[in-house]
Design a binder for these strands. Sequence first.
DNA 1: TAGGCCATCTGGTCCT
DNA 2: AGGACCAGATGGCCTA
Length: 240
Amino acid sequence: MQPVSSLRGNGQGEGTFHELLPRSGMVAGGTGSGGSGSFSGGLQGPQRHPKFPRELSLEEQQELRRKINSRERKRMQDLNLAMDALREVMVPYASSPTSSLGAGAGLQHPYLPLGASPNGRRLSKISTLVLARNYILLLGSSLQEMRRLLGEVSIGGTVPHLLLTGGWPFLTGPGQLLLSSPEQPLGLAPCSSLPLNGAPVPEESTAWGSRGVAGTPLCPCRVCRVPRVVHETPTSRFQK
DNA sequence: TAGGCCATCTGGTCCT
DNA sequence: AGGACCAGATGGCCTA
């Protein structure tokens, strides 16, 4: 797939004239955070932005602005790469008319295309995110159902310890989720809703607030609701 | 032509 | 101080 950025000839590449000058009318009269109408690189006097100290020459300010713009561009491109990777994984689940992640899942979302990505067009960012969320919910509810069935079968039998103790199975499915391996210590409390030893599931465990796919209640425990995703990079700006 | 989607620029804020 | 992150604004491209 060709990157979108390469398809857009807006003439605002690295080091172009446009990059160094304020776009006409861009911030004039604006009310948002960028509404000061200032362009630090070109301003003189008291309106100069504190980010560009007075002692910097005009060229130095332009160079600084160019650096900041370049970093931001790189950041957004990295974000788009990650979005493309997610989109690549999710596309098969969006293309089926009977997709369990789409309308058939009872989770139709205004941003989610009905059944398929329209006319073969690529998924939009928000559709990709909605689809991925639904996929995660589906996995959680499937796992819960699997545990329930295993619990029924396990009366007097042997059931994989990991499943009944709430451990998340090591998945290598199409989602390519980076999940922890079963060998890793999970450190999670057993799921209270699991029918251990064939014990009946408490009534209150089916009255959870948030609903899963197709109206299936989601288990409130950390195991069922939250897969152990191993992030390659910190996701929170506060975890550095 | 209107609306959706997107890339980019920009200033503000917070963190290291 | 410098970098990362965020959100607002703007304009281009595309489709219905």
